[in-house]
Design a protein around this nucleic acid. Structure first.
Lengths: 168, 168
DNA sequence: GCTACAATCTGTAGAGACTACAGGATCAAG
DNA sequence: CTTGATCCTGTAGTCTCTACAGATTGTAGC
């Protein structure tokens, strides 16, 4: 972590600017600060939050982590690893443990990808009455329970490209 | 849609039986009815819901769609298409778009996996290994011309194989 | 038919992760 | 110095389920 004074690359963003830049909702930033994923940023004289490039990166990591299906707590753990908090034993345990979680996620996503791709390939894309995609969905879990225990490993995944800052 | 009277293949299930059969939570069925994904089913004299094979199929469709990462609203759209027998060009578009999102997720997860694995390995030797995972998820596709324009699809994906009916 | 015990019914509350709004303070352009 | 956009804080609402409470039904056994 460096002193907060910047070059001219990024002149300290305020909350709304940061939200626009990373593509999240304005309030999400405050929310992440509130639950401790983002540190309290420095403030202007009038108590407006000011974000530097490091905080922006951290925020992007969190947002993408959510999209990838990690829960808030999992992201908290990943950030702890990145922050180099605990000793080497802790880091080792955490990393290997997360590698396993990620391995399962990848396996599940691949399965989804395969199913969706194969199904789409059979689709005529015209106005034909029967659609293989619809049928595949109805086929229940013919291809097995689809990983049954992992996919996202988490409910409530963040929708990609959702909710950018409010604009009435 | 056929008349509700059945042969002996499926003797009209009640909510709990249906939940057990399709592998979802008891209350989820009522929830989907509440938000209009499932129609109000016929009832017994005592107002117990009774589900036939068609409704079971529809429920499986919804659950499967959620597992595959479609949002509730997307599923609503897919169901409308299925109900209306309309063309499947839209379905195809939605699906391929989906596949692309999944492809990017897999790529990012692989990055994460690689870095975490390397960190764990270095942990055996170094005292304080660095773990640059935050950097790994920076570019991930968002930093295009207008930031978050290239994203797509899903909120709150249903975790695969989650929540079977409640059993204390 | 009557008695139990399970399963459903309704409505409402809770979890997790945001998202929106109200009423006031601050910033920055003119 | 004014003014409209932005930000502040706190609190309430949304979405997708899931759980619970108290009242009714369904049904198996006597």
């Amino acid at each position: 972590m460096q002193p907060i004074k910047q070059r001219d690359s990024m002149p300290l963003l305020r909350r709304g600017e940061l939200a626009a830049r990373v593509g999240c909702n304005l309030e999400t930033i405050r929310y992440y600060e509130g639950i401790g994923l983002l540190p309290h940023p420095p403030r202007s004289q009038g108590r407006h939050r000011l974000y530097d490039a490091d905080l922006a990166k951290r925020l992007r990591f969190i947002l993408r982590g959510r999209e990838l299906g990690f829960s808030i707590e999992e992201i908290r753990a990943l950030l702890a690893i990145a922050d180099g908090g605990g000793g080497c034993a802790d880091v080792y345990a955490l990393t290997t443990q997360h590698v396993e979680v990620i391995r399962r996620k990848i396996a599940d996503l691949r399965k989804l990808q395969r199913i969706l791709t194969e199904t789409a390939a059979r689709c005529a894309r015209d106005a034909s009455p029967e659609c293989p995609i619809i049928e595949a969905l109805q086929a229940s879990s013919a291809d097995g329970p689809l990983g049954a225990a992992s996919f996202a490993v988490v409910p409530n995944a963040r929708e990609l490209g959702k909710a950018v800052a409010t604009r009435p």
